[in-house]
Design a protein around this nucleic acid. Structure first.
Lengths: 107, 107
DNA sequence: TTATTTAGGTTTGTAATACAAACCACAAAA
DNA sequence: TTTTGTGGTTTGTATTACAAACCTAAATAA
Protein backbone atom coordinates (compact mmCIF):
# COMPACT_ATOMS: atom_id res chain seq x y z
CA UNK A 1 0.00 0.00 0.00
CA UNK A 2 1.39 3.35 -1.05
CA UNK A 3 0.60 5.43 2.01
CA UNK A 4 2.04 2.79 4.34
CA UNK A 5 5.28 2.74 2.35
CA UNK A 6 5.66 6.45 2.47
CA UNK A 7 4.94 6.60 6.19
CA UNK A 8 7.64 4.01 6.71
CA UNK A 9 10.04 6.00 4.56
CA UNK A 10 9.27 9.20 6.39
CA UNK A 11 9.82 7.60 9.74
CA UNK A 12 12.94 5.67 8.72
CA UNK A 13 14.43 8.91 7.39
CA UNK A 14 15.40 9.66 10.97
CA UNK A 15 18.08 6.97 10.75
CA UNK A 16 19.95 9.18 8.28
CA UNK A 17 20.38 12.16 10.54
CA UNK A 18 23.87 13.03 11.73
CA UNK A 19 24.14 11.54 15.20
CA UNK A 20 27.16 13.67 15.95
CA UNK A 21 24.87 16.70 15.72
CA UNK A 22 21.78 15.04 17.22
CA UNK A 23 23.23 14.63 20.72
CA UNK A 24 21.76 17.49 22.82
CA UNK A 25 25.01 18.92 24.19
CA UNK A 26 26.54 19.03 20.71
CA UNK A 27 23.32 20.36 19.24
CA UNK A 28 23.67 23.34 21.59
CA UNK A 29 27.28 23.88 20.58
CA UNK A 30 26.47 23.65 16.89
CA UNK A 31 23.50 25.99 17.24
CA UNK A 32 25.71 28.60 18.93
CA UNK A 33 28.44 28.41 16.38
CA UNK A 34 25.85 28.56 13.62
CA UNK A 35 24.58 31.93 14.79
CA UNK A 36 27.62 33.61 16.30
CA UNK A 37 30.18 32.56 13.65
CA UNK A 38 32.99 32.32 16.16
CA UNK A 39 33.34 31.94 19.91
CA UNK A 40 35.89 30.88 22.50
CA UNK A 41 35.84 27.87 24.80
CA UNK A 42 34.75 29.66 27.96
CA UNK A 43 31.97 31.57 26.24
CA UNK A 44 30.46 28.37 24.91
CA UNK A 45 30.96 26.71 28.27
CA UNK A 46 29.02 29.43 30.08
CA UNK A 47 26.28 29.71 27.51
CA UNK A 48 25.65 25.98 27.30
CA UNK A 49 26.18 25.17 30.98
CA UNK A 50 28.45 22.25 30.13
CA UNK A 51 31.41 21.39 32.36
CA UNK A 52 34.94 21.91 31.04
CA UNK A 53 35.63 18.23 30.67
CA UNK A 54 32.41 17.45 28.95
CA UNK A 55 32.69 20.41 26.61
CA UNK A 56 36.28 19.52 25.78
CA UNK A 57 35.39 15.99 24.74
CA UNK A 58 32.37 17.05 22.72
CA UNK A 59 34.53 19.58 20.88
CA UNK A 60 37.09 16.90 20.11
CA UNK A 61 34.37 14.73 18.59
CA UNK A 62 32.98 17.57 16.52
CA UNK A 63 36.48 18.37 15.29
CA UNK A 64 37.24 14.74 14.52
CA UNK A 65 34.01 14.61 12.52
CA UNK A 66 35.09 17.68 10.55
CA UNK A 67 32.18 19.77 11.77
CA UNK A 68 34.14 22.48 13.55
CA UNK A 69 37.55 24.11 13.45
CA UNK A 70 39.50 24.61 16.65
CA UNK A 71 42.21 27.24 16.76
CA UNK A 72 44.44 27.68 19.78
CA UNK A 73 46.00 31.09 20.12
CA UNK A 74 47.68 33.17 22.79
CA UNK A 75 45.96 36.39 23.69
CA UNK A 76 48.83 38.09 25.45
CA UNK A 77 50.10 35.27 27.62
CA UNK A 78 46.75 33.62 28.07
CA UNK A 79 45.95 30.62 25.92
CA UNK A 80 42.60 30.71 24.23
CA UNK A 81 40.66 28.30 22.09
CA UNK A 82 38.59 29.68 19.25
CA UNK A 83 35.79 27.64 17.82
CA UNK A 84 33.97 27.95 14.53
CA UNK A 85 31.87 25.85 12.21
CA UNK A 86 33.65 24.41 9.19
CA UNK A 87 31.97 24.78 5.83
CA UNK A 88 31.00 21.12 6.06
CA UNK A 89 29.67 21.68 9.56
CA UNK A 90 27.51 24.54 8.37
CA UNK A 91 25.90 22.55 5.60
CA UNK A 92 25.50 19.50 7.83
CA UNK A 93 23.77 21.60 10.46
CA UNK A 94 21.43 22.93 7.81
CA UNK A 95 20.76 19.38 6.66
CA UNK A 96 20.03 18.36 10.21
CA UNK A 97 17.55 21.21 10.61
CA UNK A 98 15.83 20.34 7.36
CA UNK A 99 15.63 16.62 8.10
CA UNK A 100 14.32 17.09 11.63
CA UNK A 101 11.77 19.65 10.48
CA UNK A 102 10.51 17.33 7.78
CA UNK A 103 10.30 14.46 10.18
CA UNK A 104 8.34 16.52 12.68
CA UNK A 105 6.00 17.92 10.03
CA UNK A 106 5.26 14.51 8.56
CA UNK A 107 4.07 12.90 11.75
CA UNK B 1 22.04 42.13 26.97
CA UNK B 2 18.51 40.98 26.29
CA UNK B 3 18.94 39.30 22.92
CA UNK B 4 21.97 37.36 24.18
CA UNK B 5 20.03 36.09 27.16
CA UNK B 6 17.15 34.94 25.08
CA UNK B 7 19.40 33.24 22.54
CA UNK B 8 21.04 31.40 25.42
CA UNK B 9 17.65 30.43 26.80
CA UNK B 10 16.44 29.23 23.42
CA UNK B 11 19.51 27.12 22.92
CA UNK B 12 19.60 25.75 26.46
CA UNK B 13 15.96 24.73 26.10
CA UNK B 14 17.26 21.66 24.29
CA UNK B 15 18.53 20.29 27.61
CA UNK B 16 14.91 19.89 28.70
CA UNK B 17 13.83 17.54 25.95
CA UNK B 18 12.98 13.97 26.83
CA UNK B 19 16.10 11.97 26.03
CA UNK B 20 14.14 8.75 26.11
CA UNK B 21 12.26 10.02 23.05
CA UNK B 22 15.17 11.82 21.44
CA UNK B 23 17.19 8.69 20.67
CA UNK B 24 16.61 7.95 16.93
CA UNK B 25 15.50 4.32 17.24
CA UNK B 26 12.98 5.22 19.94
CA UNK B 27 11.91 8.32 18.04
CA UNK B 28 10.90 6.01 15.19
CA UNK B 29 8.99 3.71 17.52
CA UNK B 30 7.19 6.60 19.18
CA UNK B 31 6.35 8.18 15.82
CA UNK B 32 4.78 4.93 14.64
CA UNK B 33 2.74 4.41 17.73
CA UNK B 34 1.66 8.04 17.60
CA UNK B 35 0.07 7.60 14.18
CA UNK B 36 -1.10 3.98 14.15
CA UNK B 37 -2.49 3.86 17.70
CA UNK B 38 -1.53 0.22 18.15
CA UNK B 39 0.90 -2.23 16.57
CA UNK B 40 2.59 -5.52 17.30
CA UNK B 41 6.26 -6.27 17.86
CA UNK B 42 7.00 -7.69 14.43
CA UNK B 43 5.24 -4.93 12.57
CA UNK B 44 7.29 -2.29 14.35
CA UNK B 45 10.41 -4.36 13.84
CA UNK B 46 9.87 -4.52 10.07
CA UNK B 47 8.86 -0.91 9.69
CA UNK B 48 11.75 0.47 11.69
CA UNK B 49 14.41 -1.97 10.50
CA UNK B 50 15.58 -2.61 14.06
CA UNK B 51 16.79 -6.05 15.11
CA UNK B 52 14.73 -8.06 17.59
CA UNK B 53 17.17 -7.62 20.43
CA UNK B 54 17.58 -3.95 19.92
CA UNK B 55 13.86 -3.36 19.57
CA UNK B 56 13.14 -5.42 22.65
CA UNK B 57 15.47 -3.39 24.82
CA UNK B 58 14.22 -0.05 23.49
CA UNK B 59 10.65 -1.14 24.22
CA UNK B 60 11.60 -2.07 27.77
CA UNK B 61 13.06 1.37 28.28
CA UNK B 62 10.02 3.10 26.88
CA UNK B 63 7.79 1.00 29.11
CA UNK B 64 9.95 1.64 32.17
CA UNK B 65 9.67 5.35 31.43
CA UNK B 66 5.90 5.07 31.26
CA UNK B 67 5.74 6.14 27.62
CA UNK B 68 4.21 2.99 26.18
CA UNK B 69 2.04 0.09 27.26
CA UNK B 70 3.04 -3.46 26.37
CA UNK B 71 0.41 -6.17 26.32
CA UNK B 72 1.27 -9.79 25.75
CA UNK B 73 -1.55 -11.89 24.41
CA UNK B 74 -2.03 -15.19 22.68
CA UNK B 75 -3.54 -15.03 19.24
CA UNK B 76 -4.60 -18.64 18.92
CA UNK B 77 -1.51 -20.39 20.22
CA UNK B 78 0.94 -17.79 19.06
CA UNK B 79 2.19 -15.25 21.57
CA UNK B 80 2.02 -11.70 20.46
CA UNK B 81 3.13 -8.40 21.89
CA UNK B 82 0.91 -5.40 21.38
CA UNK B 83 2.34 -1.93 21.73
CA UNK B 84 0.63 1.36 22.24
CA UNK B 85 1.40 4.83 23.52
CA UNK B 86 0.28 5.59 27.05
CA UNK B 87 -1.54 8.84 27.65
CA UNK B 88 1.63 10.21 29.20
CA UNK B 89 3.58 8.98 26.17
CA UNK B 90 1.23 10.77 23.82
CA UNK B 91 1.54 14.11 25.56
CA UNK B 92 5.30 13.70 25.98
CA UNK B 93 5.67 13.01 22.28
CA UNK B 94 3.68 16.14 21.52
CA UNK B 95 5.89 18.09 23.90
CA UNK B 96 8.95 16.72 22.17
CA UNK B 97 7.62 17.78 18.78
CA UNK B 98 6.81 21.25 20.04
CA UNK B 99 10.14 21.74 21.78
CA UNK B 100 12.19 20.53 18.82
CA UNK B 101 10.18 22.64 16.40
CA UNK B 102 10.70 25.71 18.51
CA UNK B 103 14.38 25.05 18.83
CA UNK B 104 14.74 24.60 15.08
CA UNK B 105 12.70 27.70 14.29
CA UNK B 106 14.62 29.91 16.68
CA UNK B 107 18.05 29.22 15.25
C1' DT C 1 7.90 -40.82 15.72
C1' DT C 2 11.68 -37.82 15.71
C1' DA C 3 14.18 -34.17 13.69
C1' DT C 4 13.98 -29.49 11.86
C1' DT C 5 12.40 -25.18 10.91
C1' DT C 6 9.73 -21.06 12.00
C1' DA C 7 7.63 -17.62 15.10
C1' DG C 8 8.12 -14.50 18.67
C1' DG C 9 10.59 -12.76 21.45
C1' DT C 10 14.46 -12.09 25.96
C1' DT C 11 19.04 -12.21 27.89
C1' DT C 12 23.86 -11.61 27.49
C1' DG C 13 28.12 -9.60 25.97
C1' DT C 14 30.59 -5.64 24.30
C1' DA C 15 32.13 -1.50 22.25
C1' DA C 16 31.07 3.23 22.33
C1' DT C 17 29.37 7.24 24.81
C1' DA C 18 28.38 11.16 28.05
C1' DC C 19 29.77 13.01 31.90
C1' DA C 20 32.39 14.88 35.92
C1' DA C 21 36.47 14.53 38.73
C1' DA C 22 41.14 14.82 38.82
C1' DC C 23 44.87 16.62 36.82
C1' DC C 24 48.25 19.89 34.41
C1' DA C 25 50.75 24.25 32.96
C1' DC C 26 51.27 28.75 33.61
C1' DA C 27 50.37 33.59 35.29
C1' DA C 28 49.07 36.89 38.70
C1' DA C 29 48.23 38.08 43.45
C1' DA C 30 48.98 37.76 48.40
C1' DT D 1 56.81 31.55 47.89
C1' DT D 2 52.65 29.64 48.76
C1' DT D 3 48.17 30.48 46.91
C1' DT D 4 44.70 31.51 43.67
C1' DG D 5 42.89 32.02 39.22
C1' DT D 6 42.74 30.89 33.99
C1' DG D 7 42.20 27.69 30.39
C1' DG D 8 41.87 23.81 29.34
C1' DT D 9 43.03 17.93 28.79
C1' DT D 10 43.10 13.26 30.52
C1' DT D 11 41.20 9.69 33.24
C1' DG D 12 37.71 6.94 35.34
C1' DT D 13 33.04 5.24 35.36
C1' DA D 14 28.31 4.36 34.77
C1' DT D 15 25.10 4.12 31.07
C1' DT D 16 24.02 3.08 26.45
C1' DA D 17 22.85 1.03 21.84
C1' DC D 18 23.37 -2.75 19.49
C1' DA D 19 23.65 -7.58 17.72
C1' DA D 20 24.57 -12.35 18.82
C1' DA D 21 23.23 -16.04 21.32
C1' DC D 22 19.73 -18.08 23.51
C1' DC D 23 14.92 -19.77 24.79
C1' DT D 24 10.12 -21.77 24.31
C1' DA D 25 6.69 -23.60 21.73
C1' DA D 26 4.28 -24.65 17.39
C1' DA D 27 4.18 -26.18 12.64
C1' DT D 28 6.31 -28.98 9.14
C1' DA D 29 9.23 -32.52 7.09
C1' DA D 30 11.36 -37.11 6.95
Amino acid sequence: MKTEESLSEKIQSITEIDKLIHEPARLMIMAYLYVVESADFLFIMRQTGLTKGNLSSHLSKLEAGGLIDIKKEFVGKIPRTFLSLSQYGRTEFENYQRQMRQFLENI
